[in-house]
Design a protein around this nucleic acid. Structure first.
Lengths: 341, 341
DNA sequence: CTGAAAGCGCTTACAG
DNA sequence: CTGAAAGCGCTTACAG
């Protein structure tokens, strides 16, 4: 396909290709779909005709005939600003789109409400408009999505809150282990009064990270009572930091459950005249661009966000191919040491 | 549609509804499509059957029959991380999705290369897979998109670089006027040595903002030679700021063509021991969340990003309805004064 | 206002 | 390996 000036000329059909190649529609269909039950010579003739006519199969017709849409929904049960405002998700989306680029699937963007999906969203997902779905940023209370896999192949970005007796496919990191890793770095560097800024309790990853902090603290014989809740936004990180400072002005470190929140926390620390990391050391989570964009470059727990996105898409693609794939995939976290701790 | 447990039951067809209602398929089709050529009583019966069977029309069949896809492409000719990394775009996307929520259209995400679209992208766009497209973050050199409107209704987010004799539909602000507004604020507050951090020269908005700065400076009789180029990323803003400081260590203000870059510039200023705004005043552009997320809250030129997104979607929807709408829409910028200037 | 019928552009058993 | 034919689930003139 050369980059000629686009025109609204009538698109050639399978029929036209068949006529041009002097074969039946069945045969053209077979070569288009890569069937091997076509003789090489005939296939070559057909391919030639396709190129000559610049034939592109009609998706709707194809979809109607074989009931496959070649579309995947990217479901984001989250406020857009919140979701796209976090560079971690930008990387995940990038991984997904890259992995899909070489496939024939297209991505349908479905922004759903954090609480419950709209009727339009439900109808769309259940109405056979997509072959599968990737759900990112899942919150508890949204059982619609966790039971959606009864109707559709679904992969979650991050282990979702699951109804009893139900498990979903997902790609994630071991959040508890990652949090323990980050907290351990603070402990190892001699910090003793270590607080945490958590994520929202309706997200599994937030809960797991909090738990990792608790266990690392207890294992080191340190008090794990300095807790303030955030919601994964920058502003909430600052607010939580303020509360921690009130709870204990003598704290010497804080583990923050996301880099964006950590950036907010660092801003507040500086604002209140504390030096980072001298007075207060800060460890973030994600290793997104938020970790290097702020006033202080953050030491943080790395999540391979891009690969996670690619893994989500890869898992879904395998599912759609009917392959029997491992239903959960945990990637590794690592510690990235920079200035903040 | 109640939130019952999704199952892979065979979806009821138009045919089934017709049988249940005791009418022809034509009639059911008419009530589904809101035709008024149906008697009220019959319509009621049909509606009842539709509700009872939980009927949802098959998109593919519909699309095949009337060659409308009810899908819109959101084309992003930009690196994902870059695009989604800028909160300004997050707001625009939010405006678009909100405006589309009440329509029957779905949004297909098309991430294209900044240089040239992939063959897959071109085929998709020209292959009748969408009814229209919204192109955001357009760069020069990409004539494919600016000539795409010969085949498809297209709306640009931001006035695109246009080939000669060609104009595109777009929604934008008057970038030059906005930049002059921001620069004027610096001048009015007594600053005299005012630099600029520009956006990339392959984007029209960047060029226009630079021009607005030039004209405001010249109108005030000030030297407009303190220029450093960025690319709308945070890091580039910092780099450009460093260069400006080398060009003239005595500069007392800088107009930065985006908040994200301004955030980077502020970081560098602080790092180099300059107080903002005392030593150097900074005015950004966008009034995105980047303006309030950094170490210093930015004075900035507000773009109504959410409304811009909504306007893009609205314009495209009108075009798809066949309405004769104004092909370009300029929204107003305003100055938002905070701490940085 | 309503229905019978053709048609949208593919895929897929079924024969051969 | 190849083709004729039915069928996917809708819409839309065309009659009446």
């Amino acid at each position: 396909m050369t980059l000629e000036k686009p025109t609204r000329r009538i698109a050639p059909t399978l029929e036209a290709v068949a006529a041009a190649a002097g074969v039946s529609r069945s045969t053209v269909s077979r070569v288009v779909n890569g069937s091997n039950r076509v003789s090489p010579v005939v296939a070559a003739t057909v391919l030639d005709a396709i190129a000559r006519l610049n034939y592109v199969p009609n998706r709707a017709a194809r979809s109607l005939a074989n009931s496959r849409t070649m579309a995947i929904a990217l479901v984001i049960p989250e406020d857009t600003t919140r979701f796209f405002g976090d560079p971690f998700f930008a990387e995940v989306v990038k991984g997904i789109t890259e992995a899909l680029e070489s496939s024939d699937y297209v991505l349908n963007l479905l922004i759903a409400s954090p609480s419950a999906p709209s009727e339009k969203t439900m109808r769309y997902l259940l109405g056979g408009n997509v072959d599968g779905a990737i759900v990112v940023s899942h919150h508890s209370g949204d059982e619609f999505f966790t039971t959606l896999d009864a109707s559709l192949p679904v992969v979650f970005g991050g282990r979702p809150f699951q109804p009893e007796q139900h498990t979903n496919n997902f790609v994630d990191v071991d959040n508890a282990a990652g949090a323990a890793l980050g907290t351990g770095h603070l402990i190892d560097s001699g910090r003793r009064r270590i607080g945490i800024v958590t994520g929202p309790p309706d997200m599994q990853a937030a809960l797991d990270r909090t738990e990792g902090w608790h266990s690392a603290m207890r294992a080191a014989g340190l008090r794990d009572d300095l807790v303030a809740q955030g919601d994964f936004t920058l502003a909430s990180g600052g607010d939580a930091m303020r509360r921690l400072l009130e709870l204990d002005p003598d704290l010497d470190a804080v583990f923050v459950a996301s880099d964006l929140m950590a950036q907010g926390a660092v801003n507040v620390l500086i604002e209140q005249g504390r030096s980072v990391p001298r007075d207060v050391a800060v460890v973030g989570f994600d290793n997104s661009s938020a970790a290097i964009n702020g006033a202080v470059r953050l030491t943080t727990v790395n999540q391979p966000s891009r690969q996670m996105g690619a893994a989500m898409a890869g898992m879904l693609l395998a599912l759609l191919r009917g392959e029997d794939v491992p239903r959960r995939r945990l990637l590794d976290t690592t510690l990235v040491v920079r200035e903040s701790a």
